[in-house]
Design a protein around this nucleic acid. Sequence first.
DNA 1: AAAAAAATTTAGACAAGCCTAAAAATTATT
DNA 2: AATAATTTTTAGGCTTGTCTAAATTTTTTT
Lengths: 218, 218
Amino acid sequence: MITLTEENYIKAIYHLGKYGKDMVNTNAIADALNTKASSVTDMVKKLSEKDYLNYKKYQGVLLTEKGKHIAVNIVRKHRLWEVFLVDKLNFTWDEVHEVAEHLEHIKSEKLINELDAFLEFPTHDPHGDPIPDKDGNFKNIEKITLFQSIVGVTYKCVGVKDTSSNFLKYLDSNSIGLGTSIEVIHKEPFDNSVKIKRDTIDMVVSQNVAKNLYVKKL
Amino acid sequence: MITLTEENYIKAIYHLGKYGKDMVNTNAIADALNTKASSVTDMVKKLSEKDYLNYKKYQGVLLTEKGKHIAVNIVRKHRLWEVFLVDKLNFTWDEVHEVAEHLEHIKSEKLINELDAFLEFPTHDPHGDPIPDKDGNFKNIEKITLFQSIVGVTYKCVGVKDTSSNFLKYLDSNSIGLGTSIEVIHKEPFDNSVKIKRDTIDMVVSQNVAKNLYVKKL
DNA sequence: AAAAAAATTTAGACAAGCCTAAAAATTATT
DNA sequence: AATAATTTTTAGGCTTGTCTAAATTTTTTT
Ligand SMILES: [Mn+2]
Ligand SMILES: [Mn+2]
Ligand SMILES: [Mn+2]
Ligand SMILES: [Mn+2]
């Protein structure tokens, strides 16, 4: 049996280790889970014991295949529930994360597979993140941040990096959402702000915004 | 903040105390929750401290209004999720209870009220039990057990007392479900079995079955 | 009204997760 | 290469919810 707390650790470690092959360190995990490094050390030993990850003292941890499998399944559940909340229950994209954080721990194969079917097998969640299928497979769409974009090119918004309520509400209030077309007009070297044309409207977004908005060439 | 364990105790006490005004005793609670009497004593002290119930040493407990409110809200969530599972996700009535047992603890006002609306404000769950509305109000339909029925009268099946998978599957295999018409042909004094006519078919059900099937005069 | 049986509470212990403070190891700086 | 700073682990303790065994109270039986 795997506990809710163990699941949260595994998911956090998965997200922290997603890019790059190097080990995930204690402080990063403590930070992600709002807990203390000493607590992480304790838990990491237990997870290693249970074979969800490999732990090397003072070095960090790496999920095993077993651990990755658990993690991807939790991510699948999290994102499917988010789709459900937005598509069926009138939640906005800034409201879903907190509730999905709890729903992702409900354990029922049938529940999640039927939910998947009920939602007609969505491939992406409300924030543009890919949804793993029943076997854990998914493909990341090629995307860059608006920060990495090129002047003169038109892009489509395909995701957000920061999923905080604050950022999502900012985007809402500026009529930017998934699918929105964005033409890059100018990139200001001084403060790295980006001038874009959204529909017919010109607007300037800060470096912070540009770095948290994923776009794809049209 | 109320913990998952506390919620389960409160719900169990609510169901045990539903009929009759007398106090719920320690062993009954321990039994319902598959735990030990000593654990119940501990928890009951804590719940009393938090004002969810009144506890009199060696006498038993009674939920306060605050406790009842919590309980009814959990029951509401439990039953709405059961409807969702059956109506939208192709669960059968014998599969829903276990999953709903977990879903009932998800804390989000918006979630449950939107779910209620999405399901078009159902009044009863898949087992015929009434669903409290947003304010905790619900009405029990007048019903008796088949055991209490009268020979010669035709009834409609409106609920089940035992919601175990075994019993529900037995009913399925005998084509008895909510809404099924049942005419009482004979009540056998020797073993309290009941001979009924379901559609055009005569069949005999045991005392055990008769005591767990709720019916209503047509 | 005792004595016996049953129900309930108390005492003491344990696992899971968390914390703070101190010790040890690693990494960065001089 | 030595010292300083940072990171990580260890040690010891706390809370929640559980358990077993023993003590106490209530209820039932004689
Ligand atoms: Mn979570
Ligand atoms: Mn998401
Ligand atoms: Mn429950
Ligand atoms: Mn039910």
